[in-house]
Amino acid sequence: MDSVVKKIVREVKRGNQDAFAELMELYKDKVYHIAYRMLGNSHEAQDVAQEAFLRAYMNIESYDENRKFSTWIFRIATNLAIDRIRKKKPDFHLEDKVGGTENLDYYSQFASEEELPEEQIVKLELQQWIQDEIMHLPPKYRSAIILKYLEDMSLKEISEILNLPVATVKTRIHRGREALRKRLK
């Protein structure tokens, strides 16, 4: 996998745009998913994911091939997501309501003529609830929790993505975990 990615990245560096499409196919789902979990809606997630890939393309020369490409692209994406959260809500508190449009957004993703089976609605509601709870975390804890528990990454990887010491990442995971526990109990 890594050697394949290296080869593709080298192609991109040579100016092969088609190779960049291959690279996107490999990482777009994860990048989009992280952005979605950080931002809580699909429009913004798509925006951020696209912007992240555009920036990656523009700055591909500065990418160090000895490091994992995933770490690099996730870092760009999380930074963009955090920037966007800051712009949207300069004063974000743990108890802030995230806004009433989330439900609408979420369901509109699955907009369909036919009625959803009840089972599916329950599942959607559960999923929506989890996302709401994640959205209640301050962004700095949110990113750590998402990378740790949703993307199943190691502390070292998370520390590289977030550009923070491992100890700080640990603290953020602990605090995020505690905050979620208090809300979910």
Binding site: M24, K28, D29, Y36, S42, A49, I130, E133, L150
Partner: peptide, 17 residues
């Protein structure tokens, strides 16, 4: 938290970029 499902990116994402 871990039971949160994974989404796939919209199909148009690559083409848009």
């Amino acid at each position: 938290v871990q039971s949160a499902s994974h989404f796939e990116a919209p199909a148009s994402l690559t083409a848009n970029v």
